[in-house]
């Protein structure tokens, strides 16, 4: 009786181990195959946001590179920059990526390959706010984790377990399957000009919102502040002219945003030019230059790009 029970127990364990091993092997195998397929098709994307990011990291040799969120993507007109500088241009701004963490990871990828002459970093008010969102949004660069080891230290900031999760073949391509399909079949019809997205329509509101939100004290994220310093150091080391810019916003701030103040100080300490257009006229008086409170339209982008270059030239001539 006891012997039979022992033998049943052994059988039970054998059964469990065998099934467990088969299941694990199947998962590892399918995960690897799916991961390889996703990687292959991800880097074959021909249009859309992911294509622009891959192009910026792996292909562009432009002299001027713009970094930032959708505001960077919509605010820096390539024709103005190319005509006035007589240099080539690419806009690496990306929708929703309003954190220096993302920009620094992309810069690392670019610097591994070549050195641009000018880098413009567009920053947002609240850029250094202590939120987990900007770390979560690093997920947009997960597909580059295995192919671009230089970006890993930044991407690992997303979570303590990121290194382990990235052992999976599929996980780096989480939530990209639809972009891979639409990008490979040309279903993404958004037209970009060297990464820049021109918006035609105008804002319907006639008076900017007023907010005292910006004057409120909030804790700065020390990691993000340090990453901005690393961004500056890497550009300085590579002899790149770096300009940090806060482009126009159709909102009147009462007080000054803490992140802007911090960035301005870091720029001054490192002898880097900082331009704050967030409260500049004529933008605050001209809703027709905006698409919405955060984004300029193409006319606004042309005027802003010219104003920025004028200011840069003026500053450099007076130095």
């Amino acid at each position: 009786m006891i012997k039979k029970a022992q033998s049943d127990k052994k059988k039970n364990w054998k059964h469990f181990l065998l099934n467990g091993v088969v299941f694990l092997v199947l998962i590892i195998l399918f995960d690897f195959i799916l991961g390889q397929l996703l990687q292959y098709y991800y880097f074959k994307i021909k249009s859309g946001t992911q294509y622009r990011t891959t192009y910026a990291i792996e292909k562009t040799k432009a002299d001027i590179i713009i970094f930032g969120s959708s505001r960077a993507m919509d605010h820096y007109n390539p024709f103005v920059f190319e005509n006035r500088y007589n240099l080539s241009y690419y806009n690496a701004g990306r929708d929703g990526e309003n954190s220096v963490l993302y920009h620094y990871a992309v810069l690392k990828g670019i610097l591994k390959r070549y050195t641009p002459k000018i880098v413009i970093l567009d920053m947002m008010p609240n850029e250094f706010a202590n939120t987990s969102e900007s770390y979560d949004k690093l997920a947009a660069l997960s597909p580059y984790y295995n192919t671009h080891p230089e970006m890993r230290p930044i991407l690992d900031l997303r979570s303590r377990t990121e290194k382990i999760k990235m052992l999976s073949g599929t996980y780096p391509f989480n939530s990209t399957i639809m972009n891979i399909i639409s990008g490979n079949f040309g279903l993404d019809d958004k037209k970009y000009i060297k990464g820049y997205y021109a918006i035609a329509s105008s804002y319907m509101i006639t008076k900017p919102l007023e907010t005292d939100d910006k004057s409120k004290v909030y804790q700065l994220d020390s990691i993000k502040v340090n990453v901005l310093k690393w961004f500056i150091n890497d550009c300085k080391r590579a002899n790149i002219k770096l300009y940090i810019v806060c482009s126009p916003i159709y909102t009147k701030f009462i007080g000054t945003d803490y992140s802007i103040v911090a960035a301005e100080k870091i720029a001054a300490d490192n002898n880097i030019s900082f331009f704050d257009f967030s409260q500049e006229s004529p933008f605050l008086e001209s809703p027709k230059l905006f698409y919405n409170s955060l984004h300029l339209n193409d006319s606004g982008a042309r005027i802003f790009s010219n104003m920025l270059i004028d200011k840069i030239f003026l500053k450099e001539n007076t130095q």
């Binding site: 995960d31 999760k165 939530s175």
Partner: peptide
């Protein structure tokens, strides 16, 4: 396996 791969592929991890 399919469920786990779907979690990895389209699950929201944040």
């Amino acid at each position: 396996c399919f469920l786990i791969l779907m979690i990895l592929l389209i699950g929201v991890f944040d």
